[in-house]
């Protein structure tokens, strides 16, 4: 069986994966037949892209784009309605002092906070994303995970960030992971037929190898995930530049094979504007400019937003700003 994307139908035609996902064995053969990833080579390519020097107009563009891509996140046991309301307000108006500052892409909360967030955001265009499926460990029975998902969708979540069963993946039960994603995707369908977008979280810090990252990316894309996402933010390391690069290679190759675009979301650990810009460079040069859009690339982050705002202010005022000039929500 050839597993190379070149064996796929021409671009634009749907790829029928039913042969691949017929059994755990066939799925395993496919995933293990993907080209390997040399860790050192991948790290060095990512590091080299990280040395791009983004200045002046390019930097202004990148900062605004990065702000528009932020999934402003709070996923704490101590979350309250007040905290979530504040966060939602911040997402709509990240810099109250500057009306030209764009809004963030979404707020990302636990399912029980979806209603609160939705109430504030309304039809502002800022989405509500909910982590579901027994986030962050994913260690619960399938029906509980599905109920968790339906709850969030019913409460108005536009996007569901699910976690995969890493234990199943690491023990080679690929088909189980695949079927779970398919089931969660079905649970994302609202009564009106519209569906919440599904982001599939891999927790790459637990999968460890880049080979695993490439394999799980293909698995999730074949299962119909709209986005593939690195991490929960609860495990170290969370998002890294090379892991994100490998996922961007996967979505690029998947589109080449199937014609379908899948989004990518690194989450956790991206704290500085400089880091965010490095990610955008990787998006630009690895997946291509089509992915330079909040519909296809997101940052899962909390403190990043203020860093972006401070840099943005520096660009417009010409002087360095300080944290007291930005809201702390």
């Amino acid at each position: 069986m050839s597993t190379s994307p070149s064996a796929a139908p021409a671009q634009g035609q749907a790829w029928d994966f039913s042969d691949v996902t017929r059994s755990n064995d066939s799925l395993r053969r496919f995933l293990h037949g993907l080209p390997g990833v040399d860790q050192v080579g991948a790290d060095s390519r990512a590091a080299s892209l990280g040395t791009r020097s983004i200045k002046t107009t390019a930097k202004a563009y990148a900062l605004d784009l990065a702000i528009r891509m932020v999934d402003l996140t709070t996923l704490e046991g101590q979350d309250t309605h007040g905290k979530v309301r504040a966060l939602a307000a911040k997402a709509m108006r990240p810099d109250p002092a500057d009306p030209t500052c764009p809004a963030a892409a979404a707020v990302c909360v636990y399912p029980d906070m979806v209603g609160v967030a939705k109430e504030v955001l309304g039809d502002s265009g800022v989405h509500v994303a909910a982590v579901a499926t027994a986030f962050p460990s994913g260690r619960a029975a399938l029906d509980i995970k599905l109920a968790d998902t339906r709850d969030a969708v019913e409460a108005g979540a536009d996007e569901i960030d699910m976690v995969i069963d890493r234990g199943a993946f690491l023990s080679g039960h690929y088909l189980q992971v695949f079927e779970e994603i398919v089931a969660v995707k079905e649970a994302c369908v609202r009564p009106d037929g519209h569906s919440a977008h599904l982001k599939v979280i891999f927790e790459t810090g637990e999968l460890q190898t880049y080979d695993n990252v490439r394999r799980v990316s293909w698995l999730a894309m074949m299962a119909g995930g709209h986005f593939i996402k690195t991490s929960t933010g609860k495990v170290q390391p969370a998002a890294t530049l090379p892991v994100t690069m490998i996922m961007l290679e996967a979505v690029r190759d998947f589109r080449e094979a199937t014609g379908q675009m899948v989004g990518v979301k690194p989450a956790g650990g991206i704290r500085t504007a400089k880091d965010a810009i490095k990610y955008l460079v990787v998006v630009n040069e690895v997946a291509g400019p089509d992915w330079l859009d909040p519909d296809w690339f997101r940052f899962g982050a909390s403190t990043l937003l203020n860093e972006l705002l401070m840099q943005r202010t520096k660009m417009t005022t010409g002087r360095y700003s300080g944290p007291d000039y930005f809201t702390v929500d």
Partner: peptide, 9 residues
């Protein structure tokens, strides 16, 4: 708009 890298001399 595209991500054009401005000159960084």
């Amino acid at each position: 708009m595209t991500f054009d890298y401005a000159p960084a001399l």
